[in-house]
Design a protein around this nucleic acid. Structure first.
Lengths: 104, 104
DNA sequence: ATGCCAAATCGCATATTTGCGATATACGAT
DNA sequence: ATCGTATATCGCAAATATGCGATTTGGCAT
């Protein structure tokens, strides 16, 4: 079964896996890049341009928030999202060495 | 339900997600780095140093193979794994722009 | 308070992932 | 051919992820 064996691996390995998991769905890549491009996007706007139901988009956004890749700033009835530079820096710090070591 | 909506997103988004998914488990990060460090490792060796059952490790290795991150070369009864530089290069090409654009 | 809109959450169905014991397969040595 | 070792695969159980309709929540205006 899927009994949690995560404690068997290092904090670092778990952190990399956690961040990678947040990126492991095309909808989340799309949402992330849209938020990134526009700097500031509301969920309502994401709903209008994404081929998924509002509930589903809300769910994916929650995943991105949980991983810390994006942040929300409430503006009236709107949730405005933007990316969190520190966490992308962390991602670079964790992932680049692995990529660099193995890339052609 | 989880009906496949992947076709609703671009090839590129799907490729990034596919590679990220391969990295989205601490055991796979651990296996990948071990294979990377030693340049050439058999599954038997991985089994002796990884806190998971042989069947489970075999499964994770299969995921890494499917994503193209590693390759196997049979040597007698041993499966020797090594990383695939082209695919890490691809990963860099796809992921770095996103990271760079958003990092602090 | 009522109505309206954006967003989050609930509840459910289905799909996929994770883990492993058991079994099957492949290879080398004898 | 038989044995021993190394891997892969099967079959199952449980956990988690995905998707969405329906409902709830929160804010703003009137």
């Amino acid at each position: 079964m899927a009994g949690n064996k995560k404690h068997k691996f290092s904090e670092r390995e778990n952190e990399i896996a956690m961040l990678a998991k947040a990126l492991a769905h095309p909808a989340r890549i799309y949402l992330l890049e849209t938020i990134s491009k526009r700097k500031f996007v509301s969920l309502w706007e994401l709903v209008t341009i994404t081929p998924l139901a509002q509930a589903t988009i809300s769910q994916h956004i929650k995943e991105l928030l949980k991983a810390g890749l994006i942040e929300v700033i409430q503006q009236g009835p709107f949730s405005n999202f933007h990316t969190r530079p520190e966490v992308f820096g962390r991602l670079e710090k964790l992932l680049l060495p692995i990529i660099r070591k193995n890339k052609r």
